[in-house]
Design a protein around this nucleic acid. Structure first.
Length: 128
DNA sequence: GCAATGACGCTCT
DNA sequence: CAGAGCGCCATTG
């Protein structure tokens, strides 16, 4: 019950992550925005860290805003995630970087990253 | 209740 | 394009 303050919030994040199609990646901020918390990118990572393994959760498709695989407290896992993504068709750059411009997932699926839309959403929630 | 931490993001240099 | 700094916010000790 420690992490179950508001199960809906975490469940929301998991639902969004589960929604990511294969061969595509999403950023923490994007997931947070889609989950209803624009500025809670960090919390998304926290939620995934506490994510139960009894449910299918493609956390591997979640990367940071730099298109890089976030390092975890456990070494070696970063490589594992990259391998999984490569197996899905996602190509990494030399610095282990992915072209979000090509692989970032978009709920609208217009063929092109609707980052502007996501940004507008976040802006809407910006404090006045 | 306060202090420290963390699978992050954005801006400036 | 890459590296470093500051900001945000919930969870944990």
């Amino acid at each position: 019950m420690s992490a179950s303050v508001d199960k809906s919030a975490y469940q929301r994040i998991y639902a969004v992550v589960r929604r990511i199609p294969r061969g595509r990646v999403a950023t923490y901020g994007q997931i947070a925005a889609l989950a209803g918390m624009p500025r809670h990118a960090r919390q998304v990572g926290y939620a995934l860290a506490h994510a139960p393994d009894n449910v299918e959760l493609p956390w591997q498709r979640v990367v940071n805003g730099q298109g890089r695989v976030s390092l975890r407290s456990r070494p070696g896992s970063d490589d594992f995630q990259q391998v999984l993504l490569e197996a899905e068709g996602v190509e990494f750059g030399l610095g282990g970087r992915v072209s979000l411009k090509k692989y970032q997932w978009t709920p609208r699926a217009s063929g092109r990253p609707a980052r502007a839309v996501v940004r507008a959403k976040a802006k809407k929630s910006l404090r006045k």
